[in-house]
Design a binder for these strands. Sequence first.
DNA 1: AACTATTTGTACGTATGTATC
DNA 2: TGATACATACGTACAAATAGT
Lengths: 259, 259
Amino acid sequence: MVCYHAALIYWEPGAFMSETFYARVARDLAEGIASGRFPVGSRLPRELDLCTQYEASRHTVRAAIQELQGLGLVSRKKRAGTRVENSSSTRGYRQSLASVEDLVQFGAAHRRVVQNIGDVVVDRGLARQLGCAAGRAFLRISSLRLNGDADAPPIGWTDVYIDPAYAQLRDVIGEYPEVLINDLIEARYGRRIAEIRQDVQALALSAKLARALNAKAGAPALRIIRRYLDQAGEAFEISVTIHPADRFTFSMCLRRERG
Amino acid sequence: MVCYHAALIYWEPGAFMSETFYARVARDLAEGIASGRFPVGSRLPRELDLCTQYEASRHTVRAAIQELQGLGLVSRKKRAGTRVENSSSTRGYRQSLASVEDLVQFGAAHRRVVQNIGDVVVDRGLARQLGCAAGRAFLRISSLRLNGDADAPPIGWTDVYIDPAYAQLRDVIGEYPEVLINDLIEARYGRRIAEIRQDVQALALSAKLARALNAKAGAPALRIIRRYLDQAGEAFEISVTIHPADRFTFSMCLRRERG
DNA sequence: AACTATTTGTACGTATGTATC
DNA sequence: TGATACATACGTACAAATAGT
C-alpha cells in the first residue's frame, strides 16, 4: 500500500519509511512555527483541518501536536484551540540525585576514613581554588575515600572546609564516618543547601597526594570542587576531592523537563 | 453509563469523574512502582495483560504508560517490554541550561572547526568508551574547539558520533559550523533529546591528540562523554570531548527545587 | 544465520464527554 | 444556550523490532 499525502510529498509505510507519519507532521508544523508562518500568539488550524490538510487521521494529528506540546511550542485549550507559545524549544534539563548511582557521586556510597582535622587559614593559592577570600579561616577535615575492598587502593582524597562555627562537628564526624557532612550540618544547625556549585578539572597528582593515594606522582587525576551555598548564597561548606583517573568517573544524568 | 473497573473500584464518566481513567491507571502503576511491587529493573506486565487487569482498552493503557515514561519511571523496548527504571520521580536538584555559563559547557559558545568527517565501525575499546555495542557503525565528525583568540591554543577536541541515518547532516555541518549537532537533528529529524548522560574522566593526553591540541603528550586532560538519549532510551548521538587540564573547567550549578 | 513469535509502535475508524467562547 | 474544539475512550489492523529457537 502506498499512501499519498499531498502536503508532505510521498509517504509509504514499510521498509522505506524512514520517519513515522506523525513525526513528519510534527516536524512540518514545528518548521511552520520556527519560520514564522505560525507566529507566537497565533493559533494552529483545528485538528480536523489539519486532518484534511495532511490527509491524516485525527489520532495522527493529535500525536503530532502532542510532540509540539512536549517541546513547549504550543498549548491547548478546549474551545480556544492550539496556541503557539514559543518559536523554538528552550526547555531545561533536570538532574536528579535520587538514584543510588547519583548518590555515589556525592559521596554517600564511599567509606570515609578521617585522616586529619585541623584549622586552616586560606592562603592565596587555596583561595583561588576554593573561590573564597584569602585570609578566611576554616575547619578542614581530610579523609580518604574507600570502597568495600580492604586492599583496593583508595578511590580518592577529600578535604572538606567548613565554617569554624561548626567546630562541634569535629567529634561527631569521628563517630559517624558514614554520614555526609552536609547532612550533619542540616540536621544540627538547620542550614539547608539551596545550591551546589561544582567545578571539575583534570590535574597531575602531586607527590604527596600520590603517596597518600598509593598512586604515581604526575598521574592524571580528577579534582572536584563543590561549594554548598545556603539560601543567602553564602558558601558554608566547600569540599575538594581528588580521584586518580583510573579509579573514578564523574557521571551524571540530565533529563529534559516535561511540559 | 456507569462502568465498573474491577481493579480500580468504581469509575464513572460525567460530572462526578474527578480523574480520567488513564490517569487513574497511571497512578495505580506508579504506586505499584513506588511501593516496590514493581521493583527497579523488573518489567511491567505487557500492555494486553494490563488491558485485562484494568478492563481498559489498549489505547487507555498506553496513555497511562506514556505518563510513566514522561515521569522517567519506565522505559520501553519492542519485544522486551516495559522496564522499571526509577522508583519515584524525584524532585531533586535542577540544572538549568538557560544561563550562558551553562551553555558554554554544552559547546555553544565555542567555535567549531571541523577537521574530519568519516564513517567508523566501533571496535572493542571504543565500545567500552562510548557504552555501545562493538561493531556498530557511526558517522564520526571530528572538530577542534576554539575560543575567540586566533593564536590561542585550541580548547579541546571533539568527536561526535551520530547514526549513519543522519548522514545528510554531513553537508549541513560544514555550512553551519556554529550550530549544535543535536539541534540540527532535532530540527531536521524531529528526534528530540529526552536525557543526557555525561561521564567525566581524567586521562593523559596521547601523542596524537597532544599534537593536534598543541599540548604536551602525557599531560593531564579532561574527557567528557555525552550520550544523548531519545524517549525510548536509545543513544542517537554520542560525543567525546578532550580538554587539556589547563584550558577548561567543567562547572555546573545545581539548585534545589522548591517543594 | 535465518526464521518465528512476541511485544511495542503507528495508523485507521467511531462515539461521546467536557469546557468555553 | 448552542456550537465548537479539544479530551477521553472504545475498537481494529498491520508494521517494526528483537529475543529466542
